[in-house]
Design a protein around this nucleic acid. Sequence first.
RNA 1: GGGUGAUUAGCUCAGUUGGCUAGAGCGCUUCGUUUACACCGAAGAUGUCGGGGGUUCGAGUCCCUCAUCACCCACCA
Length: 796
Amino acid sequence: MESSSKNELSKVYEPGINEPKISKIWEDADAFKPAGDPAKEPFCVIMPPPNANGTLHAGHLMYTIEDIAIRQARMQGRPTLWLPGTDHAGIETQYVYEKELAKQGQSRFDLGPDEFYKQVMAFTKKHQASALSGFKSMGFSADWSKLKFTLDEDIIDVVYDVFISLHSDGHVYRGNRIVNWCPRCQAAFPDIETEHIDRDDAMYTLDYGTVQIATTRPETIFADSAVAVNPKDHNYELLVGKTATIPLVDRAIPIIADSYVDPQAGTGALKVTPAHDKNDYEIGQRHSLPEISVVDEEGKMINVPQEFAGLEVLEARKAVVKALDSAGKLVSTEPLTHSIAIHDRCSTPIELIISEQWFLRVKELNQPVIDAIEKDEVSFYPTRYKRNALNWLNQEHDWCISRPGWWGIRIPVYYKTSNDPAKDAYLIAKTEAEAVEYYGAGNYRTETDTFDTWFSSSQWPYATLMTSGKGDFEQFYPTTLMATAHEILHKWVTRMIMFGLYTTKQVPFKNVYLWGTVTDEKGQKLSKSKGNYEDPMAITAEYGTDALRMALSIGITAGNNGAIYNEKIQGYRNFCNKLWNVARFVLAKVPPGTDPSKAELLSPADHWVINKINSAIKSVTRDIESYHFSEAGQTIYTLLWNDIADKYIEYSKQSPNYALLAYCLDTILRLAHPFAPFITEAIWQSTMWTDSNLISEHWPNIIHKSSTAQAKQFEIEIIKVVSANQQDANKVEALKLRRELAAKQNQLKLTAAKLNNSSFVANAPSAIVKAEKARSKQAEQTIKDLEVEIEKLESS
RNA sequence: GGGUGAUUAGCUCAGUUGGCUAGAGCGCUUCGUUUACACCGAAGAUGUCGGGGGUUCGAGUCCCUCAUCACCCACCA
């Protein structure tokens, strides 16, 4: 740091001044690039690509978890790559940009596909830049030079190759199927991209002549192909094989038997509308019923009597009900609250229609995924998501992968045109030239649909590493850790495993860490629309990025929601300041030329603090390696504040061991660096015993052995030391020691009771019994020591 | 309808294969301090670990059951 010479730190840590300087030091040193010892196991994280259509949200802050893992691995000397990227987010981005256009009274149709694509690209690049600068200011040490985007040409090429291969292996098909259709987006979506909301509607009972039919969708009666009843339903058994009559149009339809029908539901007779209901579609398939569409892609009525044609679904419902009523065919109307499907991005009610789309047959492709997960070739944190993933994989339906968007990766298909467009053969080719080369000259039209954005992003781990630089794939695939939000386990994580296994024969990551939702103190999800989401930049400006990072990683555990609020962040700001001041104290006292690695243990206090540090090194190392970030952070917090600051430094004021003091600071900086990279690096830059950058320094090892007996001795001494400045010090101490004594006596009683319990001695593992005996002996000794101490104090 | 999670101090939450006297931060009470730090220190109060049952020498931790809340999937004639 240029402004202050080494060894002199300002009184209060100022994140706003330090953070940009530290970022620059890392950048200049190229510290985020993979380095490390090639003999060691590589560590690689592929960053979940944020959607490049808006500013960062609270979930993105959780990437802190990945940075902690990455920074530890880097310090452990492993070749370490955190590969960043962004996602074009297909339909979603298109929707966001169309809203922008609408503000200026325009629609995408005013621009046309090419101009629209150009504008959305510019829009996306703008947001990408702001997302990246947000990530950088969070201290995320990803290798930004390798940044990938889902619309990069080389990525698209990988996606195309995989599609072509899937097609030739028979996993891809094109067909007319019933799909969830969003009339607003004019696109089909799989179930997983729909949500359900409750709506107040009505249940109408209609007169079909021979039977009565209950329905919530009277406007679809014109699409009925049959009436179905349960074959075991005696009320209707005589009617099977006869006909019912659709009111208003007086069309006769067969009455069929199908065991799907629930005799208890509605009237027990079901109108079968294969073109607009999933279950009816299945029934229709079983009985070869005609599929009559009455709702088109814009959500308007077609193939219906003139008076209803062109109406929107809900208007049509009103009109049909009115007509039924005046025709005397409406038996009853009852209010009903039921849930309806909406598109999760734009909240438009979903229509079920039959549409020609591209599908991926998932059953076969999922089987290797199920096997791999069952064999624990990938570990889930928390483990319960293993079962969750398996449940989903076992029941996933074929995945509709085509979207009629203008913003995305065009499906690499051409149609050789003929006189009848319905008969045009489709041909798989990346470009028209390729199509001509393979299939001969002719008139070609291109497929206009694009891939579902998850189709490309689910290939992210290998697609990025194959294109990020020479040797990256060989060195870093399969990757070490995939950490992302739990709500995209099905949409993304399981599909990445599926594509990974299909394309590379390997699970693309060894560990999956799923975080929960970031909430406020009341458990409400943080969101701008709810007004409880503060711009992280404002938080970091006030409290420092390190404080925010600690608030995000401590007290929040895998799979659970975590609350984040000002008081919590403030608490970790205080921690940072504590660390800063410990450094100020140590750096002001330690004489030049001190080498912390050559420190010697001289006093019981020295043994005590080394004892604390050694066990902290052990547990922090283990906890980060096993993704228990919260535990690791807690340990560091306690070590710095309770052990080093409150006890060892207080003791040092009387009887200093400077080299060891320096060692304490040195070690705590290393341990805390993954959590609080900025402040630890800022202090590191001011230490006089090194000129390196902390980010590239080695992870702490245990280098001093401490004596437990001496450490214990200090436990008693410390009470005297820290209260030495108090008035009535002796009295306070004696009181405190008496309390300690009572606790010890109680402990002795409990241990004695245990040891007297013959079944405990007989059944408990010998190590536990041994430990209990040792504890008992120790308690006896401590009680003696304390009694002596108290005697001394009270007599003086 | 099926599933998962949560329930631990006033609040927000830790507690990794069952094993030291159940913890932390914030808040609260009392006292103190100004050359590391009021973004501070010392001392303190607060818990039938949601209820009930079981397994075990030993349960916050494992099993069963009930309750409340949250989420996910499916269905909704």
